[in-house]
């Protein structure tokens, strides 16, 4: 009878290598979908960085002779009602979408983590104050809140990022707080107290890392929804100001008028948004599995 030596098989596949390319190769082969998601994300990042190199037209230049041209060899994705090249606008729009998506998710999550951690760990009046503010923020729909924020701050890229980040704070804070409350009671936190660790160090070293998995899932899910929020804001005229390209505005400004006559104006920005959201979600799921050592072999 032959027996399989699982350990040596795993070793051969690179499961035990903790560093370098071998580990990366092992993870890529284990999390195919996640790798695909990462690939999509990297593609968007690359497109955003090298936008000027990969398109032939200025995304802002108006060409009235070629209005609403359907996709052909000159304009791969056609042109819009001003004769602007859709491909160039999508490529440059990637910059805006990524900046808004990553910027606001990062900003909102970091503040949310701090609020949630302080709230859950310190409890008492700190918790009370933070939770009531959170209640107020959560009572308003994300879009309405972002709308009010941009209306107050004025439309510009940094303001859009801030406006979208603020409504994210309560969601992240709630998740982190709930996790912190549960973790705080666990014996390993008590053990850390009994060795004389300071509260801050316990919160950062023992509590925070254990809230990482839900945070990453949440943040990647939010990354997609912030891109959508930016699209909605832009549609309402409070997002990225004209004439800079934003996928959301490209989609919404043409949706009603041209969906029958020039569907490429709706399809391509729509695909760009969906693909970006899809990629971040796939990658986020894989990342959660990898970051949770309990799910490792």
């Amino acid at each position: 009878m032959t027996s399989i030596n699982y350990d040596s098989e795993l070793k051969r596949a690179g499961a035990h290598s903790t560093h370098g390319w071998r580990r990366l190769a092992f993870l890529a082969q284990r999390y195919v979908l996640g790798t695909f998601g990462l690939f999509i994300m990297l593609l968007f990042v690359w497109v955003a960085i090298s936008a000027d190199l990969i398109c032939r037209y200025d995304p802002l230049s108006v060409d009235s002779a070629h209005r609403l041209a359907s996709p052909d060899w000159r304009h791969w994705m056609g042109t819009d009602s001003f004769g602007r090249d859709v491909w160039s606008r999508i490529v440059h729009g990637a910059r805006i979408s990524l900046a808004v998506g990553i910027g606001s998710t990062f900003l909102g999550s970091s503040i949310g983590v701090m609020v949630g951690l302080a709230s859950g760990y310190l409890s008492g009046w700190v918790d009370l104050v933070f939770q009531r503010i959170t209640d107020i923020l959560q009572a308003l729909p994300l879009l309405v809140l972002a709308l009010v924020m941009t209306a107050a701050l004025g439309p510009s890229l940094p303001n859009v990022i801030i406006a979208i980040a603020i409504p994210l704070i309560p969601t992240v804070a709630r998740v982190i707080r709930a996790n912190t409350l549960a973790l705080r009671e666990l014996p390993f936190v008590e053990a850390a107290k009994s060795i004389g660790m300071s509260e801050t160090r316990i919160a950062l070293r023992h509590v925070l890392p254990n809230t990482l998995a839900p945070l990453i899932v949440l943040a990647t899910a939010q990354l997609g929804s912030t891109i959508l929020t930016e699209a909605s804001l832009s549609f309402l005229g409070l997002g990225i100001p004209e004439p800079y390209p934003s996928w959301g505005r490209m989609l919404s400004e043409s949706a009603a008028e041209y969906v029958r006559t020039a569907p490429w104006l709706v399809i391509f920005p729509g695909v760009a948004i969906s693909l970006a959201v899809f990629g971040t979600n796939l990658f986020g799921d894989a990342l959660r599995d990898i970051l949770d050592p309990r799910q490792r072999g």
Binding site: L186, P187, F188, E190, S194, G196, H206, R294
Partner: peptide, 22 residues
């Protein structure tokens, strides 16, 4: 309390929850 912590330590009941999984 810190210096006295060195003199006394505790072992808990649940060995699964008393170690930080990360």
């Amino acid at each position: 309390m810190r210096p006295h912590r060195r003199s006394m330590q505790i072992v808990f009941q649940d060995p699964f929850a008393s170690l930080n999984p990360r």
